[in-house]
């Protein structure tokens, strides 16, 4: 069996990549994708720990995370479409009227 650490390490790297994606990408859709990546990384860690402890709880948590992720994406994309209608761009740098 592969030790839990390996999975967690992978999850840590994936999480960081997700964070980086949010930080450096300007395409709002890709930013959302990066957030999804972060959540998935967390899910991986949860499942790995669940396996280590032989407790199903971790897997149940993943179930909730996936649901929440779906809800967030739905609202986010709806918003994006709304903004796109008037701004004609999905560049997140373009929504920067509010400042100071």
């Amino acid at each position: 069996m592969v030790p839990t650490t390996f999975y967690v390490l992978l999850s840590a790297v994936l999480f960081t990549i997700g964070v980086l994606g949010v930080l450096i990408r300007r395409n709002a859709i890709v930013v959302f994708m990066s957030v999804e990546l972060m959540l998935n990384a967390a899910n991986l860690a949860l499942v790995a720990y669940a396996r280590e402890r032989l407790a199903v709880d971790g897997q149940v948590l993943v179930f909730f995370v996936i649901t929440v992720a779906a809800a967030e994406v739905a609202v986010g994309l709806a918003l994006l479409v709304a903004i796109f209608k008037s701004k004609r761009t999905a560049d997140i740098d373009e929504v920067s009227m509010l400042r100071g």
Binding site: V2, P3, V8, S11, A12, V13, T16, V19, L23, L54
Partner: peptide, 24 residues
């Protein structure tokens, strides 16, 4: 910052986990 985060996350993952195979 990403690099910093990566280092910290990896340290945490490595030191925070067990290298033994999980129970069978």
């Amino acid at each position: 910052m990403g690099a910093g985060l990566l280092v910290i996350a990896m340290i945490t993952a490595v030191r925070g986990g067990s290298n033994d195979a999980p129970p069978g």
